[in-house]
Simulated scan of single mutants.
Amino acid sequence: MNRRKFIENSGLIGLAAMLPASGFGEVAKPKFKMGYQLFSIRDEMAKNPIKTLEFLKSVGYQDFEIYGYDNENDKYYGYKSAEFKLILDDLNLSVSSGHYGFYPYLEKSNDELKRFVDQCISGAKTLNSKYITWPWISPEQRTLSNFKLMSEKLNRIGEQVTNAGLGFAYHNHGFEFDDHDGQNGYTIILKETDPKLVKLQMDMYWVMHSSKSTPKELIAAQPGRFVMWHVKDIDKVTRDYTELGNGSIDYKNILPDPKKSGLEYYYLEQGGNFASNSKQSAADSAKYFKNTLQKFL
């Protein structure tokens, strides 16, 4: 299906007609595109992905991290990967990373894992993403032995993804910092994975919420490895998520040096606990970030 025909069929003809053939006019740009993790607005993405992306663009987001890839049908948000890429192109947006569902493969065979990784690579390449990211394991999997097993899987995936010309990363939550008789999962991951094959995506909310270290301290111990950040705030009372600027994280002081980090992409994020709704939260966090924090990057 050619570009024009797909636009007509998907209701984008009005939008495309308003766009200059060469895209938007050149303006002074920050070093990094302002990114958003689409899980933060999953209710709206489930209703209407195109209108949701249009809205996010209107408040300043240019780059995204996806979630929920349908690997067996090669679909993102109900669209074939090539169709979804066409939507992104017509909106002049990008997807630089994706959270893919690796956790069920922790106990599966390496052959099954390899097949899944091949599917993820295919989808990511179609979107022109640079990174594939392992985002989570289920509560029953969070044992020291499984962190060691996962580290072996991370190295295996990292080699396969790297050989395909993409990057691979691990995203932390808070459970990796839980104490297990003087050990924790994050230390195991850092020690037992190859930095050349497994990069890191730092979720700063969870580092500040659950770790004994600060983002700057973690980066000082592994300089150049934290290629992506998630930036979200901690509610002052409940310690749940909240809009940037409404919470207790003093980002003006805790943001690490992006060069020392090895930063390539960052994504604002809010998994829930919206003051009003997911769209307003996305807009409020974008405004605060642009006005207050973007200059530090």
Rank of each mutant, 00 (worst) to 15 (best):
K51S: 11
L86V: 00
R4Q: 12
G11H: 06
D63C: 06
Y69I: 05
S22Q: 13
G35I: 11
E8Q: 07
Y69L: 15
K47C: 01
S22P: 04
S81R: 03
G78F: 02
E44W: 09
G25P: 05
K47Y: 03
F84A: 03
E8P: 06
L56K: 09
F39I: 03
G11Y: 04
D90H: 10
K29Q: 14
S94M: 05
M45N: 01
S22A: 14
L93Y: 01
I7A: 10
I66K: 01
P20K: 13
I7Q: 04
G68L: 00
N92V: 05
Y77G: 00
S81D: 04
S10I: 14
D89I: 04
D63T: 09
K57L: 10
S22F: 12
S96P: 02
S58W: 06
L56F: 07
N9R: 05
S94F: 02
G11S: 09
Y67G: 00
L93Q: 07
D74H: 15
Q62G: 15
Q62K: 12
D70Q: 06
I50N: 02
K80C: 04
D90T: 08
S96L: 02
I13G: 08
N9V: 01
K57W: 09
N9L: 08
M18V: 12
K5Q: 12
E54M: 15
I41P: 03
G101M: 06
D89C: 06
L12S: 05
K51H: 05
L15F: 14
G14S: 12
F55D: 07
N73K: 13
K75L: 05
G68W: 02
G101I: 01
F55R: 02
E26Q: 12
L86F: 12
E83K: 08
I13M: 11
G60M: 03
S96K: 08
P104S: 00
F55M: 13
K31G: 09
S58D: 10
P30Y: 09
A17T: 13
I41Y: 01
G78I: 01
G14K: 10
S97T: 11
M18D: 14
P30E: 13
Y79L: 06
L38T: 07
G78Y: 07
G25L: 09
F64I: 08
E44A: 13
F64P: 05
A28Q: 13
I66V: 12
L53S: 06
N48D: 15
E44N: 08
M18E: 15
P20N: 13
F39L: 10
K5R: 10
E54Q: 15
E26W: 03
L53A: 05
A16E: 14
V59N: 06
Y79D: 03
N92K: 06
E54I: 11
Y77L: 01
I87G: 07
L15R: 11
L15K: 11
A17K: 14
L91C: 06
S10H: 07
K47L: 07
K75A: 01
F84T: 01
K33M: 09
E65H: 00
D90W: 02
N48E: 09
A21G: 15
L15M: 10
K5D: 12
K51Y: 04
V59Y: 09
Y61K: 04
P30F: 10
L88P: 10
N71A: 09
I66M: 11
K75I: 03
A28M: 11
